[in-house]
Simulated assay, not measured.
Amino acid sequence: METRATETLKLGNTFFVFTHQSLFLVPPNEYERIQQDEDGYVCLERKYITGIASRNTERVICIVCHGKAAPEDLVFPLCRQMHFVICEECVEDLQEKTNKREIFCPYCKEEQDKKASQEKILSAVLSLMSHQTLHSLEINPNTEVETVTRLSQETKVFLSNVCVSDALFFNLLSKTVVEITNRITLFAHETTLLIAVVRSLMR
């Protein structure tokens, strides 16, 4: 069965990052620290790995050139434990080669599926950045978070007087316990077409 891709949706100033197993709310300043290229590979500045990882990552080295990344350098973690990375220069060199070879962490060889592996890396990075798991959350037009926050399957999400995309609504339904406490409006994802108005449902 194919692993579902990570999906990022935005409401106001908050990014909702849905991974295969988790949901994270990410403020803009934290979201900018983590990037994904066109192929879905996760990259971030080396100094942030040092700041969020639970082990000593002062000597984060590239598995290809064995160079030590500078704090401002973009690096691509090879696994969720961040044993090794690939530096941006080596990634560009590898992309230009016609006979591309697979590169993976020697300690995590079992993670061969690229999509699944990158999703685990993104989830691990967000989990390390997250300092709390909310038991309940009200989502309205002014909802914001100051730090990366995790929502679990048990988190109660209350929707009230808010306009959200159908994609965000159904993703919330699949990851949390949703209760509609006032009128909400759904619109088609990536369009401005209004498709539904859900009337007031009280708890």
Rank of each mutant, 00 (worst) to 15 (best):
118 Q>G: 04
152 S>T: 08
149 T>S: 08
138 E>M: 15
143 T>P: 04
140 N>A: 09
111 E>T: 00
125 V>A: 07
147 T>S: 12
124 A>E: 04
127 S>Y: 12
136 S>P: 02
145 V>Q: 00
141 P>K: 10
137 L>S: 00
150 R>T: 09
124 A>I: 12
129 M>E: 08
112 Q>A: 14
133 T>L: 06
131 H>K: 13
109 K>C: 12
137 L>V: 10
155 T>M: 05
129 M>L: 09
126 L>M: 08
139 I>C: 05
135 H>I: 08
126 L>R: 03
119 E>N: 13
110 E>Q: 15
150 R>I: 05
130 S>H: 08
151 L>N: 04
121 I>S: 00
133 T>A: 11
131 H>N: 08
119 E>M: 06
153 Q>C: 02
146 E>Q: 13
154 E>A: 15
153 Q>P: 04
131 H>D: 15
155 T>S: 11
123 S>A: 13
138 E>K: 15
154 E>T: 15
130 S>N: 08
116 A>M: 00
138 E>Q: 07
137 L>H: 09
107 Y>E: 14
140 N>S: 11
154 E>K: 11
130 S>G: 06
107 Y>F: 15
131 H>T: 14
117 S>F: 07
112 Q>D: 13
132 Q>N: 10
127 S>M: 08
149 T>Y: 04
132 Q>S: 10
154 E>S: 11
109 K>I: 14
155 T>F: 05
147 T>H: 11
107 Y>N: 14
124 A>P: 01
153 Q>M: 07
145 V>N: 05
135 H>S: 14
122 L>H: 02
143 T>A: 04
137 L>W: 10
122 L>M: 09
120 K>W: 03
135 H>N: 13
144 E>T: 14
145 V>F: 10
130 S>T: 06
147 T>I: 04
123 S>C: 06
135 H>C: 12
129 M>N: 01
136 S>K: 11
110 E>C: 10
135 H>W: 04
153 Q>N: 12
140 N>D: 14
113 D>K: 01
107 Y>I: 07
113 D>S: 08
138 E>T: 12
108 C>N: 11
124 A>T: 02
131 H>M: 04
146 E>T: 13
127 S>W: 07
115 K>A: 12
125 V>T: 11
120 K>T: 06
145 V>Y: 05
107 Y>T: 14
148 V>S: 07
136 S>E: 13
112 Q>P: 00
139 I>E: 00
106 P>C: 06
149 T>A: 08
135 H>F: 13
116 A>R: 00
154 E>V: 08
130 S>R: 02
131 H>A: 12
120 K>H: 05
109 K>R: 15
107 Y>D: 13
154 E>W: 05
123 S>P: 01
137 L>R: 03
118 Q>H: 03
115 K>T: 07
109 K>L: 15
131 H>P: 01
122 L>I: 03
144 E>M: 09
132 Q>G: 01
130 S>A: 14
148 V>G: 00
149 T>C: 10
117 S>K: 12
140 N>K: 07
134 L>Q: 14
118 Q>N: 07
134 L>E: 07
139 I>L: 14
150 R>S: 09
132 Q>K: 15
110 E>H: 14
119 E>S: 07
152 S>R: 04
126 L>S: 01
128 L>K: 11
124 A>R: 03
139 I>F: 01
129 M>S: 07
116 A>G: 01
